[in-house]
């Protein structure tokens, strides 16, 4: 399979600070990759390097085998950036037509309007759209050239909950087409969890974790089965179950830490353990990241608290 994106020993220095340090990754065509990490981790710089907006200090970036600064490569890329103010005095449809004109085989402007759910607003001045509508317009602009690689930097910022859900559904629908590759950043972990095939977690300019979503959750080991135990159940009964790593009691409430919650649950049933009120977790990506980052963060500073993913900008 053709590699959509190849980062080979890429480093980027701004002044005397290394924003990205020796990053290597190969992203296969047709993959949806989420680039995640706390603020200042180097996500935006990594994105800029892949878009050809910044040149690597060392190493090389290849998009579909070409240099991203070349127009020939850019014809096959679609981009949605953060913090872009649309130009004044231009209508929605005019902007879409304009972007379509940049590409050799653009999508139909009407289709793009429908895709962005903006058909009734085609003649409206673009800057007068709501924040969420502007993001959808920018998504349409990113799709104008029917790109093979789509870059989405915080695409759902400014959208409300239902708009966000609609956006991801849309994205999933168009993603599978012709092996389109998607690279996205988001600070909503549950969004990355639901859409991405693969996650790259960045910290201090490096890729700390690289793997499939399931794999990452598995590695973090934060899966569990919990239940309310009957009076006859003892700790040794619980440890007799397969794949149990740890057991914690709080009153009659038992919580089993495991890599295989399904196996544990099945065994509880077949062992006729006196248990009810089952609760099962396959692990949340956000918890996985927090635990993985805590492991690599030896001095345990509190910079990875709940706020670590909470802001939309980074340096």
């Amino acid at each position: 399979m053709e590699s959509a994106i190849v980062l080979d020993g890429v480093s980027k220095r701004y002044g005397d600070k290394w924003a990205v340090r020796d990053v290597s990754a190969v992203i296969e065509a047709g993959t949806i990759v989420a680039l995640l990490g706390p603020n200042g981790a180097g996500k935006t710089t990594a994105m800029s390097l892949m878009l050809g907006l910044a040149r690597p200090t060392r190493g090389s970036v290849r998009i579909l085998g070409g240099n991203p600064v070349k127009p020939a490569t850019r014809r096959r890329m679609g981009v949605m950036l953060q913090q872009v103010s649309l130009p004044a005095k231009v209508q929605v449809r005019e902007l879409i037509d304009l972007f379509c004109s940049y590409y050799e085989q653009p999508l139909d402007a009407k289709l793009l309007l429908e895709m962005a759910d903006l058909a009734p607003l085609a003649r409206k001045e673009a800057v007068k759209l709501s924040g969420g509508q502007q993001r959808r317009l920018q998504f349409a602009l990113a799709m104008a050239g029917n790109p093979q690689v789509l870059f989405l930097d915080e695409p759902t910022v400014g959208m409300d909950v239902s708009a966000r859900r609609g956006f991801w559904e849309h994205l999933r629908a168009i993603a599978g087409h012709e092996g389109r590759t998607i690279v996205l950043t988001t600070h909503h972990m549950e969004e990355a969890d639901s859409i991405a095939d693969r996650v790259l977690l960045m910290q201090d300019g490096q890729i700390m974790v690289d793997g499939g979503v399931e794999e990452v959750k598995l590695r973090a080991g934060n899966r569990y089965v919990s239940f309310l135990a009957g009076p006859t159940v003892t700790t040794s009964d619980v440890f007799a179950l397969p794949a149990v790593h740890d057991v914690t009691w709080s009153g009659r409430h038992v919580r089993i830490t495991t890599h295989q919650p399904d196996t544990v649950l099945r065994a509880i049933i077949t062992h006729h353990l006196d248990a009810k009120h089952f609760e099962i977790s396959q692990g949340q990506l956000e918890d996985a990241f927090l635990s993985l980052m805590h492991r690599s963060d030896v001095d345990g500073s509190d910079s990875f608290g709940s706020n670590a993913f909470g802001s939309k900008t980074e340096g």
């Binding site: 907006l53 950036l81 953060q82 872009v84």
Partner: peptide
């Protein structure tokens, strides 16, 4: 305001 950055990612010279 970011517009030029976006345009720079397109094939427009």
């Amino acid at each position: 305001q970011g517009w030029l950055r976006l345009v720079q990612t397109t094939p427009l010279s």
